[in-house]
């Protein structure tokens, strides 16, 4: 077989695999379209109407800007800014604290109940407090996201750092690595698989808390604001569209993080498979 033929066969195989996995998506969308047109309910607009509204709302911009309209930029930039900003802060704080707690049984003893209690508080409960403390601005958004997403990072970092193989640590000590070197070259890599699990979980939580903070804090822009705005205008295609955008966003965040995780932890995945 020629090279191109091989490639063709491989592509066909991939396409078939994709078709097997994704065939339900067009089917469900089509059924929904037909049913919605038949029922003509205001509450359940057909997908075509949702897409048209979405396009008008956010994706009518010039191609150079990936079709994003001014409204889309005005909504996405602050929302995603808060999301990533809060997530990054929580990651830094959670990893630093978590590794410190994980490496010290004494420290862990003192703070364990505080962590247990802190993570049991539903984060949205604190939003009214943050509004009073910070007014309804960026700081309130960040505080909500940081408080909400720091726990998975913290708890997983503690776990990862606590159960580093004793032999790894002893090897590092025997060969005279300094404390800082042991932290960077041994403890952090060994804890990385756990830490990454926490980071991924907290990224999806960050999306949720971003929306909650925007909804409860009555933001004046952002994806959450758009939800309230469309609701108040009884713009149901707009609401459905916004929700769909959030779903796509969550899916994209999770899958792009998975790509990064796979690359960073390739040693872990492959070492695990072998034995």
């Amino acid at each position: 077989m020629t090279n191109t033929a091989v490639r063709g066969v491989r592509w066909a195989g991939r396409a078939r695999g994709l078709a097997v996995r994704l065939w339900t998506v067009p089917v469900v969308v089509a059924v929904w379209e037909v049913a919605a047109r038949a029922v003509e309910s205001v509450y359940f607009p057909p997908p075509s109407a949702i897409l048209a509204r979405l396009r008008e709302l956010w994706f009518s911009g010039p191609p150079a800007r990936l079709f994003l309209s001014d409204a889309a930029i005005a909504d996405f930039v602050p929302s995603l800014g808060h999301l990533f900003g809060g997530w990054a802060l929580a990651c830094l704080g959670g990893i630093a604290l978590g590794v410190a707690i994980g490496r010290s049984r004494t420290l862990a003893g003192y703070v364990d109940p505080l962590i247990e209690f802190g993570r049991a508080i539903p984060p949205p409960t604190l939003i009214p407090l943050f509004i009073v403390l910070f007014k309804a601005d960026t700081r309130m958004q960040l505080a909500t996201i940081v408080y909400g997403v720091i726990w998975p990072v913290l708890v997983n970092s503690v776990d990862g750092a606590r159960y580093v193989d004793r032999l790894h640590i002893e090897t590092a000590r025997v060969f005279g690595l300094s404390r800082a070197e042991r932290l960077v070259m041994v403890i952090l890599p060994a804890a990385a698989p756990k830490i990454f699990a926490g980071l991924r979980l907290s990224l999806s939580l960050a999306l949720i808390l971003m929306v909650v903070a925007e909804l409860v804090g009555s933001a004046t822009s952002g994806i959450g604001y758009e939800l309230i705005y469309t609701q108040q205008n009884f713009d149901l295609p707009g609401m459905w569209g916004t929700i769909a955008v959030l779903g796509v966003l969550g899916f994209l965040l999770n899958s792009s993080f998975l790509v990064v995780e796979r690359r960073t932890l390739s040693w872990h995945r492959r070492a695990g498979r072998k034995g």
């Binding site: 949205p124 309230i228 469309t230 149901l236 929700i243 779903g247 969550g250 999770n254």
Partner: peptide
């Protein structure tokens, strides 16, 4: 469906 924040469904 899973990553859609359920809170976002509240207005709807």
């Amino acid at each position: 469906l899973r990553p859609i924040p359920s809170i976002a469904l509240i207005p709807l």
